[in-house]
């Protein structure tokens, strides 16, 4: 039995209802300290409602949430939160805004100012630090918001859709920041519906759909939940490939060169395409090229969430 102290975040049987509508239903999962956890789900899955409960902004209708050993609302100073919709005072300068946010987390103004300047310069915003935020581009403002979320060196960082609206270069930069946070011992939980980021960053993921948890585990475990598939090209018919062992579904990939045809063979969850390949060669099928594909997190997500995420 593990104690809560090993986890930065623990939810036990948490539900949230708004009138007749249930936004989160019996949600339980834990996030180990120092890990990066992806909180995944399609739009409207209940991610933001869950995050708000973790932060103590709204009380669960049922269940218990423990954040850094206490209640979310009582350990706010140790949490960094990046909301989905950015919110900054447009007339303030980036450095003043960050110092103000740090002050709310009980960081001394002099310390906060030094950190703010260093972080702004590190993010390439040195020359904009004393200009009003309204004069900054959207990407720059998002960086300011991120710095405001991290300036007090939080133990737990919760990022709600952090990559939305960022260009590829800034997305890469944010991924580096998240990895760096974990290296320094912070716990990161980020919600997203873009699986590629989670795939590159997370050790563990929690998947949600319609307010319910549909998966919790490692990336490997998540991928295992999706079927593998094999691309096979040759002068073979649909019936011939469908008869191969383990093949659950055959998708027509179109006509290939010199009378050959491309087929995508999906295998039942947990089955390897090895047996099918062996059978194809043993039966003398005219196979000219094949390529086995491991399932991606996206594949797993589609399977686990019932195809709601696009």
């Amino acid at each position: 039995m593990t104690s809560h102290s090993e986890f930065a975040l623990s939810l036990e049987g948490v539900s949230k209802t708004y009138g007749d509508f249930t936004a989160v239903r019996d949600l339980s999962f834990q996030v180990a300290r120092g890990s990066i956890c992806g909180f995944l789900g399609p739009n409207g899955a209940g991610k933001t409602s869950s995050v708000r409960m973790m932060l103590g902004l709204s009380a669960p209708s049922a269940g218990k949430i423990t954040v850094l050993g206490g209640e979310g609302g009582k350990v706010l100073d140790r949490i960094g939160f990046l909301p989905e919709e950015r919110g900054l005072y447009r007339k303030m300068t980036p450095v003043d805004m960050i110092v103000f946010l740090a002050g709310l987390k009980r960081v001394k103004a002099s310390v906060a100012r030094k950190r703010a300047i260093a972080m702004l310069e590190a993010q390439g915003l040195g020359e904009f630090m004393n200009k009003p935020i309204k004069s900054l581009s959207k990407g720059m403002s998002q960086k300011v918001q991120l710095i405001g979320c991290l300036v007090h060196e939080p133990e737990l960082v919760i990022l709600d859709e952090p990559f939305s609206g960022l260009d590829p270069v800034n997305q890469q930069g944010l991924e580096d920041v998240i990895r760096d946070l974990a290296r320094r011992g912070a716990t990161v939980l980020f919600s997203t519906h873009v699986m590629q980021h989670a795939e590159r960053l997370c050790e563990n993921v929690v998947m949600l759909t319609k307010g319910r948890k549909v998966f919790e585990g490692t990336l490997k475990q998540a991928r295992a939940a999706a079927p593998r598939y094999l691309e096979l090209e040759g002068a073979v018919s649909r019936e011939q490939v469908a008869a191969l062992p383990g093949v659950a579904e055959v998708v027509d990939g179109g006509v290939a060169d010199e009378g050959a045809h491309l087929w995508r063979l999906k295998f039942a969850t947990g089955l390897s395409p090895n047996a099918a390949l062996k059978a194809a060669f043993l039966t003398g099928l005219d196979v000219r090229r094949f390529e086995a594909h491991e399932p991606t997190l996206h594949d797993a997500f589609i399977v686990l969430t019932g195809g709601e995420a696009q």
């Binding site: 932060l55 902004l57 609302g73 706010l76 949490i79 939160f81 909301p83 919709e85 950015r86 919110g87 900054l88 005072y89 447009r90 946010l101 709310l104 987390k105 918001q145 405001g148």
Partner: peptide, 16 residues
């Protein structure tokens, strides 16, 4: 103004 610019939510995650 704070509600429409979403600052309010940020503040609520930092102060009661």
């Amino acid at each position: 103004e704070e509600k429409s610019s979403k600052v309010l939510e940020v503040l609520l995650t930092s102060a009661p």
